[in-house]
C-alpha cells in the first residue's frame, strides 16, 4: 500500500511492513542528545501523532532564514536505549530513521500503535528537496545544529518504507534470519 498522509497522524496501526508513506505537514528531528533531553525535561511541543526523524541535518542561514541543505537519516539503533520510553511518553505515530531498531522498540510500537519507517540512508539531498522550510528549532544553543530539535515543514516527504509495524512484524528480523541462513551455507562452502 502507498499512503499520502498529513500530520498529525491519528491511526498508525493501519500501516503494515512493506507499505510506503509520503508525509506532508511537519517532521520533528531528534537524535541521541535530543531523546535524552526530551525524556529528562519534557517536550516543548506536542508530539502526539507526530513524525519523529532520526537525523542530524546540514542547515545554514541565508538572509536571516534557515535553509536546509541536506537531511538524510542517521543510524537509529543508537536511539534504542531511549525509544521505548520516548514512545510511551510522547506517543509519536511514525519513527523515521535508517537501519532499523531492536526488540524494545518493536514492543513499544505494538503497545502504543506506532511504526518505524526507513528513509533511504544518506539521501540528504533528496530529503532537502522535500523540506519546504523550518518552522522552529529547540535547544539549538545547547546541542548544536546536528543534535537540536528541528521542526521542518515538509511536502510529500518520502519514500518512507514501513519496516517495523505495530503488529510485531519487523522486516529486519526477516532479512536477518534469511542472511543468517545464507551465511551458514557460505561458511560451509568456504570450509570445503
Amino acid at each position: 500500500m502507498e499512503y499520502h498522509e498529513r500530520t498529525p497522524i491519528e491511526d498508525a496501526r493501519k500501516y503494515r511492513v512493506g507499505d510506503v508513506i509520503y508525509v506532508t505537514g511537519e517532521v520533528i528531528l531528534a537524535r541521541d542528545e535530543a531523546h535524552k533531553k526530551l525524556l529528562e525535561e519534557g517536550a516543548p511541543l506536542d508530539l502526539k501523532g507526530s513524525v519523529i526523524y532520526h537525523c542530524g541535518p546540514v542547515v545554514t542561514k541565508v538572509n536571516g532564514e534557515w535553509k536546509v541543505v541536506a537531511a538524510g537519516p542517521t543510524t537509529s539503533i543508537r536511539m534504542e536505549i531511549f525509544e521505548d520510553k520516548f514512545i510511551e511518553k510522547f506517543h509519536p505515530a511514525i519513527i523515521v530513521g535508517k537501519g532499523g531498531m531492536g526488540e524494545r522498540t518493536l514492543k513499544a510500537l505494538k503497545e502504543h500503535g506506532a511504526v518505524y519507517a526507513a528513509y533511504t540512508g544518506g539521501c540528504g539531498a533528496l530529503a532537502a528537496e522535500r523540506i519546504k522550510g523550518v518552522k522552529e528549532v529547540h535547544f539549538l544553543e545547547e546541542l548544536g545544529i546536528p543534535e537540536a530539535v528541528w521542526v521542518f515543514r515538509v511536502e510529500e516527504f518520502g519514500p518512507l518504507v514501513v519496516t517495523m509495524d505495530s503488529h510485531g512484524k519487523s522486516l529486519y528480523d526477516d532479512v536477518d534470519k534469511n542472511a543468517r541462513k545464507n551465511l551458514e551455507d557460505i561458511l560451509k562452502k568456504i570450509e570445503r
Partner: peptide, 28 residues
C-alpha cells in the same frame, strides 16, 4: 522490491545533489 525502492531513492538523490550542487549526504 524492498531493495529496489532504496536503490531508486539513492539514484534520485545523487541526481538532485549533482543538479542542485548539494551535498549528497547530510553526513558530509
Amino acid at each position: 522490491p524492498m531493495g529496489k525502492t532504496q536503490l531508486e531513492a539513492i539514484l534520485k538523490n545523487v541526481e538532485v545533489a549533482r543538479k542542485e550542487s548539494l551535498p549528497m549526504c547530510q553526513d558530509t
